[in-house]
């Protein structure tokens, strides 16, 4: 969405553009030929939809239908949702078979038990088993169980992931470091409409006797999308990097 809207570029806050107190320097080694290590700001283009969002939001506030504080609060709530919520759900399911059964049969109620409201989301929980490995994609856009996991990673929204994981899922999984045995079904779920999907990964071997908290630490976002198994690429590894 660039083009005509580019002309809006300089209407906006560029106060930081020439400052060097930011993280730019970490992106490129310092190069004396180019005194200005640079990565484009994400907010440097007012696209059609950004303009529309601002206009509608400002109108709603001006008419007294919502307040700026409510908008800010919703953004804060969205940002507070993280994969850690999902990891807790998975760890509970691993340690409590009755909870797991409820989670699969009626996810909204089961998740409410541990204090999360999944809002209007229609959730389907996909259980990985020794016979089936599940992986989730939205080929049409970027549908994702945001009410539990927060915002999706950028790669989930990329055309490469969206177009390839339906067509060559095993190759894509291999690129994530995940090798699925030939006699285990790979089941791709294309989230095209009103349902949202959440993968319940298999509990890793050798985790008997671990606490729910310790188990939750083995479950990363990518395991709940289904591109890795739990314990691989989990939050433990992310934390170590």
């Amino acid at each position: 969405m660039s083009g005509p809207s580019d002309s809006h570029d300089h209407d906006h806050h560029h106060g930081h553009e020439h400052g060097h107190d930011h993280h730019h320097d970490h992106l490129h080694p310092y190069d004396p030929e180019h005194h200005h290590p640079h990565r484009d700001d994400l907010d440097d283009t007012m696209t059609y939809y950004k303009v529309m969002e601002s206009a509608v939001r400002e109108l709603l506030i001006e008419k007294g239908l919502i307040t700026a504080e409510q908008v800010r609060h919703q953004i804060e709530r969205m940002d507070a949702r993280t994969p850690a919520n999902g990891a807790r759900i998975v760890a509970r399911a691993w340690t409590d078979p009755a909870f797991k059964k409820r989670l699969i049969e009626s996810p909204k109620q089961a998740i409410a038990e541990i204090g999360h409201d999944i809002g209007p989301m229609h959730l389907i929980v996909l259980e990985n088993t020794p016979k089936v490995h599940n992986v989730v994609v939205c080929t049409l856009c970027s549908c994702y169980p945001r009410w539990i996991l927060g915002l999706p990673p950028d790669w989930y929204k990329s055309r490469a992931y969206r177009s390839r994981v339906v067509r060559e899922p095993r190759t894509v999984l291999r690129e994530f470091g995940t090798e699925i045995a030939g006699d285990r079904e790979v089941r791709v779920h294309d989230s095209t409409a009103d349902m949202r999907y959440f993968v319940l990964p298999m509990r890793p071997e050798g985790t008997e006797g671990m606490s729910e908290d310790a188990l939750a630490a083995l479950v990363g976002r990518d395991a709940m999308i289904g591109v890795v198994e739990a314990g691989a690429g989990g939050m433990d590894r992310a934390a170590a990097e």
């Binding site: 095993r170 791709v188 989230s191 095209t192």
Partner: peptide
């Protein structure tokens, strides 16, 4: 779906359709 599909014969895809 894919004539040149290289995965296992039992691989599936599930999609929501109206």
């Amino acid at each position: 779906i894919w004539p040149d599909y290289e995965g296992a014969a039992d691989d599936h895809i599930e999609i929501e359709i109206y």
